[in-house]
Design a protein around this nucleic acid. Structure first.
Lengths: 236, 236
DNA sequence: TACTATAATTGTACCGGTACAATTAATCAA
DNA sequence: TTGATTAATTGTACCGGTACAATTATAGTA
């Protein structure tokens, strides 16, 4: 783990341990430097990271302050998208409906930047948060990058497996969201009625080298999906 | 304008001018340094900015590559949230329903971190993109921070006014989103039917000093609202 | 040809420094 | 006490540097 990541983690831990609230002040930069025994730029980098994650904000001439105070019941939109599956103390489980190797449709192939002749894993599951239906997910993995999957892996976190077992690292993702109505199949999966409202999110996950490796379509249960997004400034 | 912002803008311009596509390579760091006549860390900072905005991605040992290739018809979730109102070539207009000074409700006061006795501006409008109903918005501004508003200002961009005329700068925002059904009033405004699906986003905008100054509730027309969110890595 | 080891390329981590702008605290005048 | 001026605090911009890790190109070997 890199120094600045380590320091960021420790500062976040410190905030939790001291139970600091919105607006509370952290030690000044210079103290953090000597405290962790690193240079200014390393501390700055750790703080930038925490700032982007919505944990703190910095005000020059004044200090470093705690920002986070998320509403209970709202999940970070990013935490539900493969990134860090810490949904706090919530339990995430899955019903795996399908894990199979197929050929992608035109649409899927385009989103993954591959040919329709290339193999993909198709994964279909229903996901639960604390036992309640959360979403229905259909996703496709490029087999050339993810050569093997099974029901066990898929029931757990696919991303953890991909990163640890395959040694590839996820770089960035593009999410496309829209609101609509459930069709009959989806309604059945989610325990809702046809034409009920829903949030649909398509996400294309890329490796650090820019290659797409996962395209997923998620249909959310509208009553159990509340998301928070923390944005940073006009120049984010 | 700061050097690294300027350079970021120029690089983005270069990508557009050269019509570079997803995966195309940019000049290497060292060349950018000499080209713009700045140090490495300044170029790096410009590139970080572009990376966060989803314009490029960097791959060490390899180079700097173009990332953006957003789907047509999808607006950046952040661009619709006060931040940089460049919706491409789309025209944004508003029907102002109300601009008045009132006392906040308990709920509004809590979200703005003020007392129910403090004054707020209440702004109510319907917004259109290219003439089509886009959303219904109800927002509250802390009068102590935004001492004056009128229909003209509100019909245009409130954020531009606040930043230029009042000299305050927006720091960060928290967005809370959920899906639901329209009530009768909302349906009327949006030209839809009661119980139609909708996306609701509450946003609390803070100044750079962390003080909330605007709390807004937006109800989106589900057929005209498609959003894209670009996320960066597991450690964004 | 195909595979492996080596070298060149290229971005990232980290250091340490100077100058400066925004905020806050201290000082002074009315 | 109030208000303005000055000084101290504190984060940010920017410089320039070394070391290093990941990628890609090259050379070497079977």
């Amino acid at each position: 783990m890199l120094k600045y990541q380590q320091i960021a983690a420790e500062i976040e831990q410190y905030i939790n341990d001291q139970d600091l609230k919105q607006g509370d002040k952290l030690p000044v930069l210079e103290q953090l430097m000597s405290q962790y025994g690193v240079s200014k730029s390393t501390v700055t980098k750790a703080l930038e990271l925490l700032e982007r994650r919505g944990v703190i904000f910095q005000l020059r001439g004044s200090g470093i302050f705690v920002r986070r105070h998320n509403r209970p019941g709202y999940m970070s939109l990013f935490s539900t998208q493969g990134f860090k599956n810490n949904l706090g103390d919530r339990v995430l489980t899955s019903d795996v409906l399908d894990v199979s190797i197929t050929k992608p449709s035109e649409d899927v192939a385009r989103n993954l930047g591959i040919d329709v002749a290339d193999d993909v894993y198709r994964v279909e599951r229903i996901r639960y948060v604390d036992g309640e239906v959360f979403c229905y997910e259909e996703s496709y993995y490029v087999k050339a990058i993810v050569p093997y999957l099974n029901r066990e892996i898929v029931a757990d976190s696919i991303f953890d497996y991909v990163q640890s077992a395959l040694g590839v690292t996820i770089g960035f993702s593009d999410m496309y969201m829209q609101v609509g109505r459930l069709n009959e199949t989806e309604a059945g999966y989610l325990g809702l009625k046809m034409d009920d409202p829903t949030l649909r999110i398509e996400t294309i996950f890329h490796l650090t080298n820019g290659k797409p490796f996962d395209y997923s379509r998620i249909t959310y249960h509208y009553e159990h999906s509340q998301f928070v997004v923390q944005a940073n400034g006009p120049y984010m």
